[in-house]
Computed example of a mutant assay.
Amino acid sequence: MAPTLQHLIVPYAATIAPLTGQDSQLPALPRLARLLARLEQQETDAGDEYSLSPPHERVLARALGLPTTDGAIPWAAWQAGERQQACAWFTPCHWQASMDQVTLQPPESLDLPEVESRELFEALRPWAEEDGITLHFESATRWRAVGPAFADLPWASLDRVAHRQLDAWLPNGGQLPQARALLRLQNEAQMLFYTHPLNDRRAARGLASINGFWISGTGAWDGQALPAPRVAASLRAPALRGDLPRWAEAWVQLEQDEIAPLLAAAEGGAAVRLTLCGERNAISWASGLPAKPGALSRLRGLFQRQRPLDLTQLLSQL
């Protein structure tokens, strides 16, 4: 029997923000260098920063055996164990409007307790039902929506829009007719939430309003999935905020918490796989598998010659 493969996926191993300035210099990551020196590059998941599904979602979906259609990976159905019915996540958030753009602030940055989230959930539920959508309260930051509207409906991942402009990510109702009712529901929610007493109470406490929701994780799931690899989530928040010093600090902690055990397993002869994901591409390395030739093979030679890891050079490929 083949040994169980230990697979670690690292989202936001690189960001689209440039690594410039003294405060943005990455520290040495010796365990990562040692691990990559032992592994063979296997494949690259190539894309760009405009895909609806970021690289780490594509890689995870492929590892699980889920559909990988851009913007239509059925995360809501899979995570909820909902079989055969199309689902989506509704994420309550703050749409921050300025003179020339609207930016989305995700709930984890908004101090949204469950009791307040439930108030808005109950306010939106009858409006959703009029459109044939059933809402289920999963947590303060995520409501599950069920209905045929979410079948074959691409929508940008929350990770694509958190702390970023929305105009490029909202579907075009003229080109995507099945999105029109949902775009209308989003507009109705903005008006409904704007006048909700909850936001007056939040304003009195100096908190941003919850004035909308984002749709993501759309699609139906057939109930089949492979064992999930481990996903290291600690780089996500500072990367999305564009906080490069904190992102670099998170890399040091991640190397200790996640890379070190994987390195120990590899040195002990275990089959391991490491996938580093940026906002454009993802690259996988593995042990015990034949290497595939590729444009990044020169990096493997770099590590195998025992040179210090130039993480900035590596991350530029992501």
Rank of each mutant, 00 (worst) to 15 (best):
L26V: 03
A28M: 04
L166S: 01
A265L: 07
D167E: 15
Q186G: 13
L192V: 06
A203K: 14
R83Y: 10
A33Y: 02
W143I: 01
A17S: 09
W221P: 14
E82P: 02
L274I: 05
R142C: 02
Q175V: 03
A291K: 12
L318S: 07
P126S: 06
G173V: 04
L8D: 10
P92Y: 00
R34A: 13
A156G: 03
L296R: 09
R236P: 01
L276T: 04
G268D: 09
Q84D: 14
L276N: 05
R201K: 11
G81R: 10
M99D: 13
A250Q: 09
A46M: 04
D200I: 02
N187W: 08
E119L: 13
L176I: 09
L244T: 13
Q186H: 08
L183V: 05
L289D: 11
W247H: 15
A282L: 10
G223C: 05
A145Q: 07
L110Y: 01
Q317P: 00
G288N: 11
P154E: 06
A260G: 04
R31H: 12
A156E: 01
P27E: 05
W127R: 14
P18C: 09
R31F: 08
T134A: 11
P113C: 03
G217N: 08
E43D: 14
T15K: 03
E108M: 00
Q6V: 01
G173Y: 08
N187A: 14
Q306M: 05
A232L: 06
A265Q: 11
S53K: 03
E108I: 00
A149I: 02
L29K: 00
G65K: 05
D257A: 14
L176F: 07
P106R: 00
F90M: 13
H163Y: 15
L8S: 10
G206W: 07
D111M: 04
L124T: 04
R164P: 00
A63G: 03
A203H: 13
V231N: 07
H94Y: 10
T15C: 11
F303Y: 13
L112G: 00
L302S: 15
